[in-house]
Amino acid sequence: MTGGYFEIQNISGGYGSGRVVRDVSISIARGEVVCLLGRNGVGKSTLAKLACGFLRPMSGAVQLAGVEITGKRPSENLTLGLTYCPQERVVFDDLTVAENLSLMRTDRRLDEFEPYFRAFPRLSERRGQYAGTLSGGEKKLLSFVRGLSEGSAMMVIDEPTEGVQFENVVRMAELMLAQKEAGASFLVVEQNLTLVDRVADRIVIMDHGEVALSAAASELDRQQILAHLTV
């Protein structure tokens, strides 16, 4: 299981003493998009947090480009090229849209966000508005743009399309594929098959904190996935 660009190796962990994720390993190659699927509460988000340094794993390790990053702070991981977009509380509510984007830049110019603004004109219209007043879907778009614009080689995105309308999901997929062409890798926690169908190279399905299924996207048909997801 070595040789991947982003390696999650036998990770277990959770909140406090609760073990939500049990011995999960996922390896992601350069330029690969892995979609992580599963019903609510099976530990997908927890796995993402464990992988990115927001939770300390009880056991297991994480490697990025051959460098061990287990236990490193998220801000440090970012400098190493690991971006994370959370599932909840995705933007800074009491900052404006523009501030949310320019927060970590010394100049306050938004020029380089123009391509994203063209894709999502709604965000551009709202740049002076407090992010807290955006709808859930708009917040997700803002968070997605923030993450993508960091230009990291590895991105972990937790449910980017929650509440996002169909056309915008398609544009998100296009933007991701463009980044992927440039060599970026993705781990996307997702419920929405619209996005998964368009971007996934490989699909990992989790159940009860463990990996239930891992296969190339081309090998799985929609029915098999649905069987794992729907009621």
Partner: peptide, 22 residues
């Protein structure tokens, strides 16, 4: 940006670390 970063850190410490605020 420092003012915004403090507001960001206090309002949402988890996301603040995620966007690279030490």
């Amino acid at each position: 940006p420092t003012g915004a970063r403090i507001r960001a850190m206090v309002g949402n410490p988890v996301l603040a670390e995620a966007v690279g605020i030490r």
